[in-house]
Write a protein that binds this DNA or RNA. Structure first.
Lengths: 210, 210
DNA sequence: ATTTTTTTGACAAGAATTTAACAGAGGCTT
DNA sequence: AAGCCTCTGTTAAATTCTTGTCAAAAAAAT
């Protein structure tokens, strides 16, 4: 049980470290110093050491960090050695894109169920998973130990579906709908607001041209 | 010409203000105080006032902010009153999801061209836009005053395509590939790394259960 | 075996960001 | 129209986050 809380700023950087370490590992690099990693990732060496040290000393003076060991430690910290079962609500374009995005499975994120309201889609298969009607949601969640709900539905439906998921025990929601879900304290929401990302880009385009 | 640089922390919050103000406007609210907005958005009133004041005084003592006026000002700041022409590279599931995502057009982001390497997709139509082969990219970008390139392609192809886009004058890239693009200083990149978002959620799930 | 070099982990200093506090502008009431 | 009340813009304080520094641990070299 950790005593000090890790800031989300640090947490946000972990997946990127993880990605680079994976690439280093795959290309056969055994050890790396914070300075070398700094050069590759364009982040200060100081920050790298500080970030890793939040979770304990993974390196060794005079040696640096063992790439494979560090990679696995970060995977552990991120919870990637555990399996997660997801239900995807909304089998539209975005939902299908995510369902077909194989790489998630490699990391233990298994899309177990797909739901939609559209009669034309219900019964069809997406990646070997039959799209089910919304009425089956609660029973399915309970039967399949669902961890995470993925909302790829219009904002108008998001709040209600989120409530249903939470009511049947889902504690984490990956939300692609353009709403801020109002959830109990013990439920986690990770938002992906694509339009906000695009607006940020737009802002920076215009700032430059002024 | 603004003298002081606005921090990206502030910029990241603008689209969210914009969304809430749009909703308030649509529901007929004429004026709002930073305190009321604070209650709705769960952000401190102080931060709201501070954020808006980065761009000049939009409010009035004793009155608050005029919703419609503020909404338009933020739209301006975000560059949403200008038209942007995008090319989308990669007409797979994610590319199609984005192409079909109508709301972007309402904000002036027009998907003008769609490209892919897959012979089976080239020539087909996505939202009235014919998918073109990659060989047509450069000419198309020049002919259509393309602003923004959207990369919904595998990481293996991302760097090369980004280089091609930059070479023919594109200065902003919305990148969905899992790589950090290495671009010249005058080129903007906005990354959407879905797997990193999911890993953050995973981290928080596991932290809770410890 | 001793010295030199490398490189971490810890801590301190420095920046940046967020929150609090308040004077005063301007609306609202009587 | 005078005075009260609201609520911003601004400055100051607090907090958080990032970077720089260095002693000491361990590897590498002699």
């Amino acid at each position: 049980m950790d005593s000090k809380e890790i800031s989300q700023a640090v947490v946000s950087r972990l997946p990127r470290y993880f990605r680079y370490l994976g690439e280093l590992k795959d290309s056969g690099v055994e050890r790396i110093s914070s300075q070398e990693l700094s050069d590759i990732m364009h982040v200060t060496a100081s920050q790298i050491r500080q970030d890793f040290n939040n979770f304990g000393g993974f390196g060794q003076q005079g040696y640096g960090y063992n790439v494979e060991y560090l990679y696995n430690e970060i995977a552990n910290i991120l919870g990637l050695h555990e399996k997660h079962h997801l239900v995807l609500i909304g089998a539209g374009n975005l939902g299908q894109a995510i369902a077909n995005y194989m790489n998630f499975e490699r990391r233990g994120f298994l899309i177990t169920g797909i739901f939609d309201v559209n009669e034309d889609i219900i019964g069809k298969k997406i990646k070997d998973i039959t799209v089910l009607p919304m009425s089956d949601l609660e029973q399915f969640v309970k039967d399949n130990a669902i961890d995470i709900g993925v909302l790829t539905i219009p904002k108008s439906a998001a709040k209600e579906v989120a409530d249903r998921l939470i009511a049947c025990g889902v504690h984490a929601i990956w939300n692609f709908a353009h709403v801020d879900l109002d959830v109990p304290d013990d439920v986690l929401v990770e938002n992906v607001h694509l339009s906000e990302s695009l607006m940020k880009l737009s802002y920076n385009i215009h700032r430059k041209s002024k």
